[in-house]
Design a protein around this nucleic acid. Structure first.
Length: 506
RNA sequence: GAUUCUGUAGCUCAGCUGGUAGAGCAAUACACUUUUAAUGUAUGGGUCUCGGGUUCGAAUCCCGACAGGAUCACCA
């Protein structure tokens, strides 16, 4: 297969050969000793003190300004950027000026990795820089990077095409520093959650991604096949049923940051694989879990921003406790003025039409309520809000409400008009659970492709006895979108799913 | 899946009512030992996403395909 090379790519390959001819390895094998980072120098350098007089840093060459026998360049490492000052006399103390005149000025390109040794100083214009005594080529780049320039915070020629940014995230990360910051914050968010749960005494576990029976959520799965066993397997849509088995096994609290897979549409809010935190705690109920959720998310905001408020788009969202709490009926009444709490299915259907909510005849009572909620309430909930008391039909794994017939002990948190978590007092009555599964089977036979499958082993586990348990699932990507103020899920996932690039030569 | 917008140099974008392409940055060459969107002078660089059609002539108009964005629908 022949690669079509641009003019610049051909040139860089020629430079590579020239380096080799000069006896300079473009991809040396030996390590380059680094003794500090760009940000360490920029933060701590003080001209008064004798510091950073022997620095050795490595990174990618991002720009240079050659002025005859002296040059300025910018190098970027894993932390930030710093300016280099390079003079011919320093680099080439002897007669041979090749290293400066040829190698530095002509054979290096933007994007190349180099290592430099020198000392820190401040230039005339007041920029902390490194006075370079030696440099070494660490890796040559054969493709030109997009060159993004910046002055006084204004960015010129930014690399913005979403398709290229997602397909070539490595370039995006090199060139758009805010992208790197977003993903660092995402990692921090997950660390805050992990330590919050760990310090509460809960155990981080791992459960199967490949499952013979998929369960724990209402969704369509990806199907695969195991050759040796000659059985079909499914990529998990949730890990709920496995974590509950561990509660049966005697753990008091277990959690997992799980990659789940759902074979459904893609959008700004949906990637086929996504991350979900699930947490199960024995001897607790969903009201306890509400407090836990509130505290954990408030903690995230404080750790990320030093305060419980987060700016999302043009909204300021406050995660300061306590959050508003509504039952589903209260919320609907509040936002539509209609009290549906005692309506039967027919009246409900009529109400839907009055509220201009799309209905069809396959929808049961629970679904109708959900439609009203989704159309008239959810879009209005910007501040984090608990919604409790869901209809039983929609929640086959939740315990029936302790006092309200037809409802279950469940809550969701809606924030920025999107659900960010879903939690129950977990159903631990094995007989009730079997009946709920059977209901789901009926739905499946009627053609509901998302209905749950009956999991005999899970029921067997419940029959051994599961303590009362509170469980929650938090969509990490959705939460990250809010916490990191990003408008699409593709901005918080390194490598979002894309259609394959079309192949050349075919 | 529906609607709609977009696809031109390595990157960001112009390109009108059809006359086979332009700018800035990047690249190349030269000058310049404290510059910073460095500067100055010169030069090269394009299957205008792909395939059809209309036309004397298509980057431009029409149809289709592919890819992406936005909105909506399903879902987390």
């Amino acid at each position: 297969m022949s690669q079509h090379l641009s003019e610049q790519e051909i040139l860089r390959r020629e430079k590579l050969k020239e380096l080799e001819q000069l006896g300079i390895q473009a991809y040396p094998a030996d390590l380059f000793e680094v003794n500090c980072t760009t940000t360490e120098i920029l933060k701590n350098y003080d001209a008064e003190k004798q510091q950073f007089q022997n620095v050795s840093i490595a990174g990618r060459l991002m720009s240079y300004r050659i002025m005859g026998k002296a040059s300025f360049a910018v190098i970027q490492d894993g932390h930030g950027k710093i300016q280099l000052y390079i003079t011919r006399d320093n680099i080439c103390p002897g007669e041979d000026k090749t290293l400066y005149d040829k190698v530095f000025k002509h054979l290096l390109d933007i994007g190349d990795f180099i290592g430099v040794k020198g000392y820190a100083f401040v230039t005339k214009t007041g920029e902390t820089s490194i006075h370079v005594n030696e440099f070494k080529v660490l890796a040559k780049a054969l493709k030109p990077l997009p060159v993004v320039k910046e002055k006084d915070g204004e960015v010129f020629d930014a690399f913005t095409d979403p398709e290229m940014r997602y397909r070539q995230r490595y370039v995006d990360l090199v060139v758009n520093t805010n992208v790197r910051e977003t993903f660092i914050k995402r990692a921090k968010m997950i660390n805050v959650m992990r330590s919050f749960m760990s310090s509460a005494g809960y155990i981080e576990v791992e459960t199967p991604v490949l499952q013979p029976i998929y369960g724990g959520a209402l969704a369509r799965p990806f199907k695969t096949h195991h050759n040796a066993l000659d059985v079909p397997l499914f990529l998990r849509i949730a890990n709920e049923l496995y974590l509950k088995r561990l509660i049966v096994g005697g753990f008091d609290g277990v959690f997992e940051f799980a990659k789940d897979f759902r074979n459904e549409g893609m959008s700004r809010f949906h990637n086929p694989e996504f991350t979900m935190l699930e947490l199960y705690v024995a001897y607790k109920d969903c009201y306890w879990m509400m407090d836990f959720m509130e505290a954990m998310v408030e903690r995230i905001a404080i750790e990320l921003y030093g305060k419980p408020e987060v700016t999302v788009g043009d909204q300021l969202i406050s995660f300061a406790r306590p959050w508003k709490r509504f039952t589903m009926f209260e919320a609907i009444k509040h936002y539509t003025g209609v009290d549906i709490s005692s309506m039967d299915e027919e009246t409900l259907r009529h109400t839907c039409r009055e509220l201009k909510v799309h209905v069809d005849n396959t929808m049961g009572k629970g679904k109708l309520i959900d439609e009203i909620f989704g159309n008239h309430v959810e879009p209005k909930l910007i501040q984090p809000t608990f919604i409790t008391d869901y209809p039983v039909e929609m929640s086959p794994l939740a315990k029936k409400h302790r006092t309200k017939p037809g409802l279950v002990e469940r809550f969701e948190v809606i924030c920025n008009a999107k659900e960010i978590c879903n939690a129950f007092s977990e159903l631990n009555d094995p007989i009730d659970q079997r009946e709920r599964f059977e209901e789901q089977l009926k739905l499946g036979k009627r053609g509901d492709t998302e209905a749950m499958v009956l999991d005999e082993d899970f029921l067997r586990a419940l029959e051994y006895g599961m303590p009362p348990t509170a469980g929650i699932g938090i969509g990490i990507d959705r939460l990250a979108m809010i916490m990191l103020n990003q408008p699409s899920i593709q901005e918080v996932i390194f490598f979002p799913q894309m259609r394959p690039e079309k192949k050349e030569n075919e």
